[in-house]
Design a binder for these strands. Structure first.
Lengths: 215, 215
DNA sequence: GCGCGAAAGTTGACACCGTCTACCGACAAT
DNA sequence: ATTGTCGGTAGACGGTGTCAACTTTCGCGC
């Protein structure tokens, strides 16, 4: 438990590393605790001394993914201009998704352990989301149109999910039959980022929808 | 023997219905073929006479989800105005996600069977995507700025994933601590739809829009 | 040094699971 | 009447998560 216990906690780290390797190799849903143990040359119960269940090791891995992701967002090129800063965060997002595809995929795997059972994982996820949220908040506040919390969530999730969709497309084989130039692939996610900016820098169409209030 | 009184293919349909029920009850990843058989009062091997594997019954269920989804999109209120038609498709999308949450969730479950193993599922998925894609294509073509195939994919996926993100937020418990009014929840997805429209009615940053005030 | 108690690791069991194989009755076509 | 296919049953195999009991290891107060 203490920092000095170094060697004692070795197996815990080894389990996480090996589990990540297995997920990369055969997929998240086919990861098994016994396989982790087998590959590490320990008994099938040894990992259970460090993780209460299969879901707990998964939650720990996903927590680290979110933490690394948050670090990447924080390490963006800062700018005093909120729009430029928001764009920089988007660029950092895209770079992370391309540099750490496995972590990125895990963050959005729908086979998550039940969230309320793994508060640490949720804390890290919300922390990463909070960074994006803050960026959106600053963006709108600088334009003199601050958002209510629920509106803020909505705009932030809009940005997040839009970017996620484009980034995911690059990972899928849906594009391979189109055999695009590598340059085009590189531009896809940034294109979406531009679209998000377009959506934000433009106030919603006031006339079209039935009722629009509370600006 | 219990359920065998009906027609020949009855068990196949019963398996699908029961599997859906189980997924709704305990989740996709905990669905088991033996449980399906047990609840139907047949032997644990009976379902295998109709589905080659667990993945095959899943693929069939997801295929139907995409088919129903495509039907819902097609049943939208049609309009000659491409922008209005696109908006109507978005409304239909949101309505489907709210009316058939289980089907909707399955369409985006990341624990999909390997796609190339289940071509029928992929055909249905691409068919549904094609509807959205066509809507985007008409939208841009009507504005006199037709898109290349790869650009079209990008814009369509941008719209899809943006809407998906907002719709998913409603299903998650991320919003419960905010205890929003039901009316606000109702508006969330439509708000995103407005944002997508805002992003599309504006040409990319390179060239300014030529006053296309169709609204 | 010693002893001890907790932690780490092992072994064994249990109840599941997917799926392969073999068997069996009904029934249709030859 | 024979044959073959189809839908269903029964059993087995290897795999899984995880509980329980056991043994080993190791840090720490004496």
């Amino acid at each position: 438990m203490t920092a000095a216990s170094g060697r004692a906690e070795d197996l815990r780290e080894a389990c996480i590393a090996q589990a990540l390797h297995i997920i990369d190799e055969i997929g998240l849903e086919r990861l098994s605790m016994r396989d982790v143990a087998r590959r590490l040359g320990v008994s099938h119960q040894a990992p259970y001394k460090h993780f209460k269940s299969r879901d707990h090791i998964l939650a720990e891995i996903i927590r680290r993914a979110f933490d690394d992701f948050a670090d990447a967002l924080r390490a963006r090129v800062r700018s005093d201009n909120p729009a430029a800063d928001f764009y920089a965060m988007g660029v950092a997002y895209i770079a992370f998704a391309q540099a750490r595809p496995l972590y990125y995929r895990l963050m959005f795997a729908s086979t998550l352990p039940e969230p309320e059972q793994h508060p640490q994982m949720m804390i890290s996820a919300r922390c990463a989301y909070g960074l994006l949220r803050d960026g959106v908040q600053v963006l709108f506040a600088a334009r003199g149109s601050p958002l209510s919390p629920s509106e803020l969530d909505l705009e932030a999730l809009f940005a997040w999910s839009s970017l996620h969709g484009s980034v995911s497309l690059l990972r899928t084989d849906a594009l391979t039959p189109l055999d695009l130039a590598p340059q085009t692939r590189q531009r896809l996610a940034h294109h979406a980022l531009d679209r998000i900016g377009a959506a934000f820098l433009l106030t919603p169409p006031a006339a079209a929808p039935p009722e629009e209030d509370a600006q």
